[in-house]
Simulated assay, not measured.
Amino acid sequence: MFSCARCGNKVSDGPSCNSCKRQFDFPCAGISETNFRKLGERRSAWRCIDCKNAQSPASTSTSTSNSNPDIAVRLNEVQATLAHITEQLVPLASLIEDVKTIKIEISNLKSSIEFAHETASQLSVTVKSLDTRILQVEEHTNLIHTLGADLNKFKEDLKEREQWARANNVEIKGVPVKKSENLYDIVDHISKAIQCPIRKEDINYIARVPSLKAESQKSIIMALNNRYCKEEFVAAARKHKELTISQLGYADEGHVYVNDHLTLFNKSLLKKAKDLAKAKNFKYVWIKHCKILARKSDTSPTFRIKSEKDLLKFS
C-alpha cells in the first residue's frame, strides 16, 4: 500500500514516475491500468504529467499515453530530436559576432595596406586567412538556417501529432466535482440529454484532469474507441446549447460544455482567433475535427488557423 502523490488516497498499485520518483494511483496518473501494462519495458521510463510539462512547453495530453502508447513514444523521440537541433543552434550568436569582428579587422587591414606597403606581404597572408574564416562562418551560417527550418518543421509536426493523439477525445466542462462520483453515469446522463447514446464499452478511458482553476472545476476527458462516435457526440451536444447541470441530476445551476479536446497551444490559438474575429467583424470561428476554422461571412471562403501566422488572415 502507498499514498497517491496527487490525491493522497491509499492504493495498492499504480505507476511510479521515472523523473520525480512519485507514485500515483491510475486515475491521477492519467493512464488506465490496462494501458500501463501494455507499455511493457517502457513502464520504467514512464513520467507523470508534471514532469512532462517541465520538459516541454507543449501541453500534456492525459489521454495520449492512455489511448495510444506508441504515439507517446514517438512524441518523446521527436522532442529528443528537437533538443539535439536546439543544441546545434547555440553557436549561432557567437558566429554572427565573429563575422562582424572579422569584417572590421579586414577593413582595418586594407586601410593599413594602403599606407604600409612594406608590410603588404604579411597583411596579404592575414587577409587570406581571414577570408577563409569568413567562408567557414558563412557555411556554418547556411547550415544553421537549414537547421532552423528543420526545427520549425519538427515543432509543427509535434503540435500536429499531439492534437492528432487527442482526436478521439471529448472534453466536458462545467460538471462540479463530487466525492464518490461515477463519471460513466455522468456521461450517460449527458448522452440521454443530448439524445446521443454512449455505451460504457464505447469508452476507452475517462477521468478528471488537473486544472489551473479550483479543484471543483476539473474537466472530464473521455476517450472514445471510435472517432465517428466522438464526432457525433460532440455535434449532438452543440445542438443542445442550453445543456445544464440540473439536467444531470445536480441541484447546482450552470451550463455544461462538450467540445473537442484541444491541446493547450490550440486552446490559446482559438482564444486569439476569437478575439481577432470580434475586432475584425468576422462572423464565424469554430472547431471541427480538432481544427480551428474561420470565415468572415456566409459567402466568404473558409480558412484554417494552424499557427499565429494564420492570424494575419483576419483582415
Score class of each variant (00 low, 15 high):
I172P: 07
I134M: 14
K274C: 05
Q122K: 11
R161A: 14
N169K: 08
N35I: 00
R22W: 03
P15H: 07
D298M: 01
P301S: 14
E138W: 07
T62L: 14
Q217D: 05
T132M: 06
Q163R: 14
K213N: 02
L248G: 00
K38P: 01
L39H: 13
A149T: 09
Q217Y: 04
I172S: 02
P197V: 08
C20E: 00
R37C: 05
I194A: 06
R42E: 14
D13I: 12
L92T: 09
I194R: 02
D298L: 12
K38T: 12
S12D: 15
A5S: 15
K178F: 04
S268C: 07
V127S: 09
I106Y: 02
W164D: 02
S112T: 11
Q23S: 12
I203V: 15
I49M: 09
F314T: 07
H255W: 00
F24G: 12
K274R: 13
F2I: 05
I106H: 01
R42H: 14
V170N: 05
K230R: 14
A277G: 13
A235I: 07
I113S: 00
P91Y: 07
W46K: 02
R238T: 12
D131I: 06
A207M: 03
I71R: 12
K280E: 14
K267I: 07
K218W: 00
S121Y: 08
I49D: 12
S297H: 10
